[in-house]
């Protein structure tokens, strides 16, 4: 079961530096797009990796494409050895992205984000401009299919004097 609210609460409580990107961000901006995972871009500083591993440790994170019989250790060292992780957890599927195509690392993604009040927390969410840049750069069919809707949302929600 994907528990978006619980995951965001957990990350916030552990003071993880993250930006919501991908389908959940698209949905938060008003799209009717349906997704089944929560994608977040995270800061790769050592302290943030420690907070991130602590936040998710109790929820049995494991790469989704990993054979069931292979051992997997969820710790700071594992996160240091990779950049992007597609995980299944007890809270649902969570994709941790150290970088977002077309935008860059956490700092650049954060610079392209907006603050949204979600479930009593102020969450960083990738902006419509940022989502359009990332989807265009990713260039896969599934990314390109969502572009017309994102561009319409951007046009409609932009202030007249922007």
């Amino acid at each position: 079961m994907n528990q978006v609210e619980q995951t965001l609460r957990l990350l916030t409580q552990h003071q993880v530096e993250f930006v919501i990107v991908g389908g959940v961000a698209i949905s938060a901006h008003g799209s009717a797009y349906l997704t089944f995972d929560l994608d977040v871009c995270y800061a790769r500083s050592r302290s943030n990796l420690q907070r991130l591993t602590a936040a998710l440790a109790a929820y049995h994170p494991r790469p989704r494409d990993f054979p069931a019989d292979l051992p997997f250790h969820w710790d700071e060292r594992t996160l240091q050895q990779g950049t992007n992780f597609t995980l299944s957890t007890d809270l649902g599927s969570i994709d941790l992205l150290g970088e977002v195509t077309g935008l860059g690392d956490y700092e650049q993604v954060r610079a392209a984000s907006v603050v949204m009040p979600l479930f009593g927390m102020d969450c960083q969410v990738l902006s419509l401009d940022g989502l359009i840049t990332a989807k265009r750069a990713a260039g896969r069919t599934k990314d390109l299919l969502v572009l017309p809707e994102l561009e319409a949302l951007l046009e409609l929600t932009r202030e007249p004097n922007d």
């Binding site: 079961m1 994907n2 978006v4 609210e5 949905s27 649902g92 979600l118």
Partner: peptide
């Protein structure tokens, strides 16, 4: 809807 309401709807649909 507010962004939070949109995510509640999304979460409900996911489940």
């Amino acid at each position: 809807l507010t962004p939070e309401e949109r995510l509640r709807e999304l979460q409900r649909a996911m489940i």
